[in-house]
């Protein structure tokens, strides 16, 4: 499984455009909100957590279509499933790779974007702490929907339509944690969602992969 993740990372480093595209999309999306809402610092600071969260979720959607799509089209998916690993471990490895190539870079760049949106600097750590489980949950759920929509026509649109509603609970708790008087409660909920997604999403994604190669 470790070799599978390493291989995915090597592929991503060769074709770095996917990660860069997600990051640039994230920045542009956040900036457009600032232009749309006007330069009022109070208004922007109020919007900032939600904007960063929504922009991060949308940006993380971009590489999902290729997560299994490329392997499905060139026959690698058969080889992955016949590698001797159970299908759920293949899915988990893909989730890890997605988080390392998309979630982690987004985390790194979220702080500058938040400060650009006039978020008070003392709550920026809270935003980042919330985004860690947030992006992890997104990678797990995204892997599931990418596996589910594999081989479907207009799979990319379908994927967004399934993934984004599933991310709403995480978004509610994560974005509210920044401004809430007791952020620990929201983090506990995010952790609970992560604990639920960590075993279930790869299992379901593995079953979906087995169906997709039939």
């Amino acid at each position: 499984m470790r070799s599978l993740i390493a291989r995915e990372l090597r592929l991503a480093s060769r074709q770095g455009s996917d990660t860069v595209a997600a990051l640039v999309f994230f920045i542009i999306c956040g900036t457009m909100f600032a232009f749309g809402a006007g330069p009022d610092p109070k208004l922007l600071a109020g919007l900032a957590p939600g904007v960063v969260w929504v922009a991060a979720l949308l940006a993380a959607l971009l590489p999902l279509e290729k997560l299994f799509g490329a392997d499905f089209e060139d026959g690698t998916l058969d080889l992955l499933l016949l590698s001797g690993l159970p299908a759920y471990l293949v899915a988990l490895a893909k989730s890890c790779a997605h988080w390392l190539t998309t979630g982690l870079p987004l985390l790194l760049i979220a702080a500058p974007l938040a400060i650009m949106l006039r978020m008070p600097s003392h709550v920026v750590p809270l935003l980042l702490i919330g985004l860690v489980p947030g992006t992890l949950i997104f990678s797990l759920v995204g892997t599931l929907t990418a596996a589910l929509t594999l081989g479907a026509r207009r799979g990319g649109v379908l994927m967004a339509l399934i993934t984004l509603p599933l991310m709403m609970p995480a978004l509610i708790f994560g974005a509210n944690a920044v401004m809430a008087p007791h952020p620990l409660a929201a983090f506990a909920f995010l952790g609970a969602i992560l604990c639920l997604a960590l075993p279930l999403a790869p299992l379901a994604a593995g079953a979906a992969l087995r169906l997709a190669v039939e």
């Binding site: 690698t76 058969d78 590698s83 690993l85």
Partner: peptide, 22 residues
């Protein structure tokens, strides 16, 4: 036991499964 069976197989499908980037 699918994973155990898969571990015995070397597979060559009609697609090559070659990654252009590697």
């Amino acid at each position: 036991d699918f994973p155990a069976h898969a571990a015995r197989i070397a597979w060559l499908g009609h697609l090559d499964g070659i990654k252009p980037g590697l």
